[in-house]
């Protein structure tokens, strides 16, 4: 863990010297993180409070992004919806990375039947059209938000396993792994202490990409009414509810849509930059 902590702290120092775009992306994501924690308190109105007198209204001094058909403040809903929009993707990305990296390292280091089995499973899952699978499964089971999160996690595992496996294969043939084996170290220790820190660039980059995929995937499901339950403020749900009101107040759809797109873009930018930075020569300290 010390290694990972060191990686993270040197990353923080590195961001200060990063290109402008990366710094902007990091700043925006910081803002999004603050909103995810404090969104409901920062919102100017109670997002659920209705003002039927107002009905649908465009942006005004009192309501910067206008109101929806029930007269609820759109800005407040977008701010309050941040948490719901981010928590699912975060769980998906964490689950995918923890499971995927473990299985990928295991497959890459051990080889043999474990590798063959995981590879064939991955092949099988690649053959399935994932969006269709999610829609059908979530629709049939009707399990709602957390079931969707689970299905998304399972579906993003194959590529995570593949990526971590090939990163592991590249490291496993280097002499320092042979030296560790010659010392008679247990396989678990070699994987955790020698392989994992050295494939960290891949792990961090894929974590961010998994997050982006899940963010878009879950928002899409919410839009189809298969994600967050109706009534909870969530970017995907908002996007959908504003669809019929585009002519009266386009901001109901535009604002959450922009948040999804910007968050996804910023994560991708940051992920690319982190990967380049750490895979260049593995160690910058």
């Amino acid at each position: 863990m010390a290694t990972i902590a060191a990686t993270v702290s040197s990353t923080a120092r590195g961001v200060a010297r990063a290109p402008v775009m990366v710094r902007l992306a990091a700043a925006f994501l910081l803002l999004v993180a603050v909103l995810a924690v404090a969104g409901p308190w920062l919102a100017p109105y109670d997002p659920a409070a209705q003002d039927l007198m107002l009905n649908v209204s465009g942006p005004s001094g009192a309501h910067w992004l206008g109101t929806d058909q029930l007269g609820a403040d759109v800005l407040s809903q977008v701010l309050a919806g941040t948490r719901a929009a981010l928590i699912g993707p975060l769980v998906v990305a964490l689950g995918t990375v923890v499971l995927g990296a473990s299985l990928g390292i295991l497959a890459g280091y051990r080889g043999g039947w474990i590798d063959a089995l995981l590879n064939r499973l991955a092949d099988l899952m690649y053959a399935l059209p994932s969006l269709l699978v999610i829609i059908v499964l979530v629709g049939v089971v009707g399990g709602g938000y957390w079931f969707a999160v689970l299905v998304l996690t399972v579906l993003s595992l194959p590529s995570e396993i593949r990526l971590c496996r090939s990163a592991t294969l590249a490291q496993a043939r280097l002499p320092y792994i042979d030296a560790a084996r010659t010392l008679g170290l247990p396989a678990g220790r070699i994987m955790a202490r020698h392989l994992l820190p050295n494939i960290m660039p891949t792990v961090i980059a894929t974590f961010l990409l998994d997050f982006v995929t899940a963010l878009i995937g879950l928002s899409g499901l919410s839009y189809l009414g298969l994600g967050a339950p109706p009534g909870t403020p969530d970017w995907g749900t908002l996007l959908q509810s504003g669809q019929n009101l585009l002519a009266d107040n386009p901001w109901i759809s535009l604002a959450p849509g922009a948040m999804i797109a910007l968050t996804a873009t910023c994560f991708t930018l940051l992920g690319d930059w982190l990967y380049d930075r750490y895979s260049a020569n593995g160690d910058h300290s």
């Binding site: 002499p175 042979d178 010392l183 008679g184 170290l185 020698h194 820190p197 050295n198 593995g282 160690d283």
Partner: peptide, 29 residues
Amino acid sequence: AARLVQVVFQDPYSSLNPMLTIGAALEEA
């Protein structure tokens, strides 16, 4: 067996784990 035989490889640039300090690598051995 590990205590009986040990090895020094050809390429010093890849025979040490780049993420471990020298001390940590030695402590492990």
